[in-house]
Design a protein around this nucleic acid. Structure first.
Lengths: 338, 338
DNA sequence: ATGAAAGCGCTAACAA
DNA sequence: TTGTTAGCGCTTTCAT
């Protein structure tokens, strides 16, 4: 049978209440040192493990947090999850990962499940700009931190890479290579990352004297290889840019595929820049020039903010922006001389 | 405040015990149909969600299962997890993922955490052939299913891809291309997959009349790109095979890197075959010829077996082997004519 | 078919 | 400093 607190108390010759106090850091000071030692010994001898359900039922805390990602198979997310998990487990929390499959309805379900599980907090990497589920959850006062993607008009802390700086770096790099006709395959505008990168792109492109024709910006419906390819075909049907700045790496991969379809070589004919520096993009053909975002650190930082909120009731609402850097590989080259 | 069963019972005008019976499928038959309806309506109206902790405290079940993977950042595992999660959530279970970072000590910790969380069962993709932690957990009667990697001498159900057939297909493909000097960069022998693929390789190579020199088999310490590259260098220092069968895709990627370092082209000089068909290997340069394993289905099947064990106490100990197929891409070519 | 009551293992307010 | 007591929300015998 399972060892309970009562067993420990009996063996130590104290009341279960005392044993409880002796075993919990916060209440340990209420118990004499000698008793603490006796109880701890007994606990050790019996290999006592507190029953988290009993504890949770009493305290209304579970020391579990939910992490919601849009797609775990997207190599972008495991490092984030990993970074978060390390911090969370350090603080004594267990992580429950939910995958929404990029679906608003499933996000709602996941949120409901996690709520009924009484998670103490949430890390959310799947937020859309309009996200009723998140808004509602927020109103209930559940501690939560957004990762990368923000929700409009909700006062929630967020941790992101520096999207603006990333776009600046990418455009500057292409400018140095002589490109002035730069297209942008934007992420979906319903995601804050898609919108903000697109906005920054338009702005920076104007500031640096590039071609600002509207047909150089094509929006992808999702951050996927397929949409990247589709958008590229659409782009090429009406323009002939010498460079493409993709909304993320998956889109960039799709773009390179579509360029090849049309008989265009990357980087000789068209340069392509990604965003995120996902694992394996250095092995692609050509190796992808992209913006590196410190994913694990983003996850870790979000976890730290969440832990502070959960434990010390310090609810920040500010956005933490982590620095990004340009990684130049083989998918960008000087503008071709006609 | 949280809606409890008592609230539902009050609204329906019945006793909480009755409400409980009405809401649980298994006890519903003990309650009159009319009452069931009334209670269900009340529950719906109040958006009642049972408190899993209270339930668990009473029933000693958590409806949570732990999924242990060696490395979530390895693109191989998210599909497995996903497949499992879909099945598990369908059966009402919540998934807790633990990442061991390929470390036996962390596996032990993860197992301990999950045990103290009282998960109802475990899916384990991180098993080593000698794995004391798993053996102990098994002795405690915790339902668990192994995925891919088996533990020696432990009577546990497992779900794997058909490693033997995979190796056969790969070697046959290379043979058809005229290769007779085929090397194998084996996975670690301490993992069942490493050992069994290596054994099968040796056997098949002998049966098909290939070169069986022992120096054509080099073992990698881990399933990683780095080890794949290292092993390839070691291999090339003492042999000049025309084809390499890698223990998995990561090793294959490392092999291609190392070949390039030595000025050898893939596939013109040396053909390379991977194993697993991880996401993105079709985008590599060259696109990797490999063995496709139905990862999501492996995860799903393992989940089904686990659910059966947990719910119906049917503990199988047999291994389920799912069919694999050869995917020919660009990394294999006819043997070069000298 | 339903109500009553006990209790899962723990913590916390109160007493001593 | 320690013991006592109540109760978190649920399920499940036992009565009725």
């Amino acid at each position: 049978m399972r060892v309970t607190l009562k067993d420990v108390a009996e063996r130590a010759g104290v009341h279960p209440g005392t044993a409880s106090r002796a075993l919990n850091l916060e209440t340990q000071s209420l118990v004499s040192e000698a008793t603490v030692r006796r109880v701890q010994q007994a606990a050790k001898a019996l290999a006592y493990r507190p029953n988290p359900m009993a504890r949770g039922l009493k305290t209304n805390r579970t020391t579990m947090v939910g992490v919601i990602v849009p797609d775990l198979s997207n190599p972008l997310f495991p490092p984030i999850v990993r970074g978060a998990e390390v911090e969370l487990s350090r603080a004594g929390y267990t992580t429950i990962i939910a995958d929404t499959d990029n679906d608003a309805e499933r996000e709602r379900t996941a949120l409901a499940v996690l709520q009924s599980r009484q998670v103490d907090g949430l890390l959310i990497a799947s937020a859309r700009r309009e996200d009723e589920a998140i808004r509602q959850m927020h109103e209930q006062g559940v501690p939560m931190v957004l990762i990368y993607r923000r929700t409009d008009g909700v006062a929630l802390p967020a941790v992101t890479g520096d999207d603006q700086r990333g776009i600046e770096l990418a455009v500057a790099h292409l400018r140095e290579l002589g490109h002035t006709s730069i297209a942008h395959l934007s992420g979906p505008r319903e995601l804050s990352t898609g919108l903000s990168r697109q906005r920054t792109f338009r702005q920076v492109v104007a500031e640096t004297g590039c071609d600002t024709s509207p047909e150089l910006v094509v929006e992808c419906g999702t951050y996927s290889v397929e949409e990247g390819a589709r958008a590229t075909r659409e782009l090429l049907d009406r323009a002939r840019p010498t460079a493409i700045l993709a909304g993320n790496d998956q889109i960039a991969v799709g773009a390179i595929d579509a360029l090849r379809e049309r008989g265009l070589r990357c980087p000789e004919d068209v340069s392509v820049v990604g965003f995120n520096d996902m694992p394996f993009v250095d092995k692609l053909s050509p190796p992808l020039t992209t913006i590196r975002v410190p994913h694990a650190e983003v996850g870790a930082e979000a976890a730290r903010i969440l832990v502070r909120w959960m434990t010390q009731r310090i609810a920040s609402t500010s956005t933490t922006t982590l620095p990004v850097e340009l990684v130049v590989r083989g998918s960008t080259a000087p503008v071709p001389r006609p």
